[in-house]
Amino acid sequence: METARFASLIAATITMGLVSGLFYAFTVAVMPALRGADDRTVVDVMQRINVSILNGWFLLGYLGALVFTGLAVGLHLPADARGALGPLIGAFVAYVLAMIVTGRVNIPLNNALAQAGPPDRLPDPAAVRRAFETPWTRANLWRTLLCTLATALLAWALLLTTT
């Protein structure tokens, strides 16, 4: 049982770190880089990213973070001798909140961007960009902060289980 607890915690920390890093990269590099691009380029790049990101590697991290963190919580429920359950529950809650932000803000904005159509045929690409960029970037910052918090809490739980 101890091996399963430790393995689930390692898997949760790795997958959460991957998701946190992905959102962080958008916060500090992708969206700032696009800020200087023209409207059609922003729409085109984000439409392409939104299609290409839906792959098995992304889903492994995104869903894996939820599954492995939930598994770690469940495996620590019966016997939490080292006090890791609190940080584990905190990590799980932080990640669920990040997923809620994704589901309520980022995904609907991604869908609206896709429905806008090909960038070269948009009558007003600036309006499409305005409707997307600021709310998406703000929501992504929240996802970044929540996932970073979840990663830190998982690292804390890992530390507690190894000392």
Rank of each mutant, 00 (worst) to 15 (best):
L154I: 05
L18T: 03
G64C: 10
A7F: 05
V105D: 07
L18A: 15
V96R: 01
Y62Q: 09
L122D: 04
D80P: 06
L159I: 05
Q47M: 08
R129T: 11
I49W: 03
T13W: 10
S20C: 15
A127N: 06
G86F: 13
W156A: 15
L18I: 15
R35W: 14
A94T: 01
V93A: 15
L75A: 06
A12M: 10
F58M: 09
V128F: 07
V105R: 06
R129L: 13
S20T: 07
P123N: 06
L153M: 14
R48Y: 05
W57Q: 06
A112E: 13
I14H: 02
L18W: 14
L113S: 03
S52D: 11
M46R: 00
V28L: 13
R48T: 13
T144V: 03
N50H: 14
G61C: 11
L75F: 12
F26C: 04
V101S: 05
G56D: 10
A116T: 02
T134K: 11
G83S: 09
T13E: 08
G117V: 04
V105Y: 03
T144C: 12
E2N: 12
T15C: 15
P118G: 02
A157I: 10
L158D: 04
M16H: 10
V67S: 03
G74A: 14
N106M: 07
L145F: 07
N140R: 06
A25K: 00
L71E: 03
Y62E: 08
T163P: 00
T148F: 14
G83E: 12
T144N: 11
A72S: 15
L59R: 02
T144A: 07
L145N: 01
T161C: 12
H76N: 15
D39K: 01
D38P: 01
G90I: 08
A37C: 10
A79L: 12
T102P: 03
M31H: 11
V96A: 15
R138G: 01
R143L: 12
G90Q: 07
V28G: 00
P125S: 10
L22V: 11
P118T: 01
N111P: 00
W136C: 02
R82I: 00
L141Q: 05
L149P: 00
A7H: 01
L71M: 14
T102A: 11
V93G: 06
L75G: 06
Y95N: 07
L54R: 13
A81S: 14
R40T: 07
L22P: 01
M46I: 08
N140P: 05
L113G: 03
L154S: 08
G61M: 08
M16S: 14
G86V: 15
R48F: 07
D44A: 15
T151I: 01
